[in-house]
């Protein structure tokens, strides 16, 4: 167990937590915006997957990682738009519409990859580009801190910055006020002439954009290729992280880090004598345990309240 302790408190581990947190954090921020507007987006999984493939294909085709990133974000926004159209215009149940997107993405990416490159499942014949890593000037020199925080993929920094941006968006801008109003009482927003549909469209498109960033990171940062179902449930974990973070930007960051840590641990633990299946299970197990703790706390809060009030 001593070595496990060493593992968790090593700089490498700290570094890898940030590395694996990045896609979860993007997806969680996206989920949070959609939920704030009262339209839960559970198609983050499929959207990330589609964006991951798009990034690989476009960066391979143009030779530019930036073009790949832009294309990935655009395709994410497009899928957000499609979800919004079905849910808001055609009144499809938003969960079922999102399931449809996830199903389409899972098979559709394989289909598209094959049609485009002839590759089956893994984009080995596409010469895709990687997004650059960034060395942060001063921090890089500081011992432990530099090892953890410097030399990450550019999108890791973007994801951390996004937490602040999302906070500003939601709490310091007119659009944020509208998003919160629409999510809490859409009739109220509607009654003052705010187009609920428009605000929800914008929110779903933004959540798609975040999924796009997450997807681009997966295939052009985390690894350097696309592979079948490579998002492996991260889009779903995001929903749990949103709930655990209680829909607040800081809470969401901490919850994402927790799941990231579980994920990182599962990679590191493979060195120890724990059955690999359990290690693989860890992030999902942590998610469920996190959900339970959150729910217990919620229901205890209500109960305690009642007990105190008892006469």
């Amino acid at each position: 167990m001593g070595s496990l302790f060493d593992l968790i408190f090593s700089t490498t581990f700290g570094y890898s937590v940030l590395r694996v947190t990045t896609p979860i954090l993007f997806a969680t921020l996206g989920a949070m915006i959609s939920i704030k507007a009262g339209v839960v987006n559970i198609s983050m999984e499929g959207t990330m997957l589609t964006a991951a493939l798009t990034g690989v294909v476009i960066s391979g085709y143009t030779g530019s990682a930036l073009a790949g990133l832009i294309a990935a974000v655009l395709i994410g926004m497009l899928l957000g738009l499609v979800l919004a159209y079905f849910a808001l215009n055609l009144k499809t149940n938003i969960i079922l519409a999102a399931i449809a997107i996830n199903l389409m993405a899972s098979g559709g990416t394989i289909f598209a990859l094959f049609v485009i490159s002839g590759d089956r499942g893994i984009s080995s014949s596409i010469n895709s580009q990687m997004l650059p890593r960034i060395i942060i000037p001063i921090i890089d020199r500081i011992p432990v801190l530099g090892g953890i925080f410097s030399n990450h993929n550019v999108l890791t920094y973007v994801s951390l910055l996004s937490v602040v941006l999302v906070y500003i968006l939601l709490y310091k801008t007119p659009l944020g006020l509208r998003i919160r109003a629409v999510g809490e009482n859409s009739h109220a927003a509607e009654s003052v002439g705010i187009s609920v549909r428009k605000v929800q469209y914008i929110s779903l498109i933004m959540s798609g954009a975040f999924a796009g960033f997450g997807g681009a990171y997966m295939s052009m940062g985390y690894v350097s290729r696309f592979s079948t179902d490579m998002t492996a449930g991260r889009g779903f974990i995001a929903l749990a992280a949103e709930a655990l973070g209680m829909g607040r930007p800081l809470g969401v960051l901490l919850a994402s880090l927790l799941f990231g840590a579980a994920d990182a641990l599962s990679t590191s633990l493979q060195r120890f004598r724990i059955p690999s299946e359990f290690v693989q299970m860890l992030p999902y197990l942590v998610t469920i345990i996190g959900l339970i703790i959150y729910a217990v706390r919620q229901s205890n809060a209500t109960k305690r309240h009642k007990m105190e009030d008892r006469v």
Binding site: F86, L90, K91, T92, M104, G107, G108, I110, F111
Partner: peptide, 24 residues
């Protein structure tokens, strides 16, 4: 033509079948 084309057909069917406003 790869068999995964079915994934796209399925997706379209689900969203349209559940689209309450379709034909409304």
């Amino acid at each position: 033509v790869p068999s995964e084309v079915v994934a796209i057909i399925q997706g379209i069917m689900i969203v349209l079948v559940t689209a309450e406003r379709l034909l409304a």
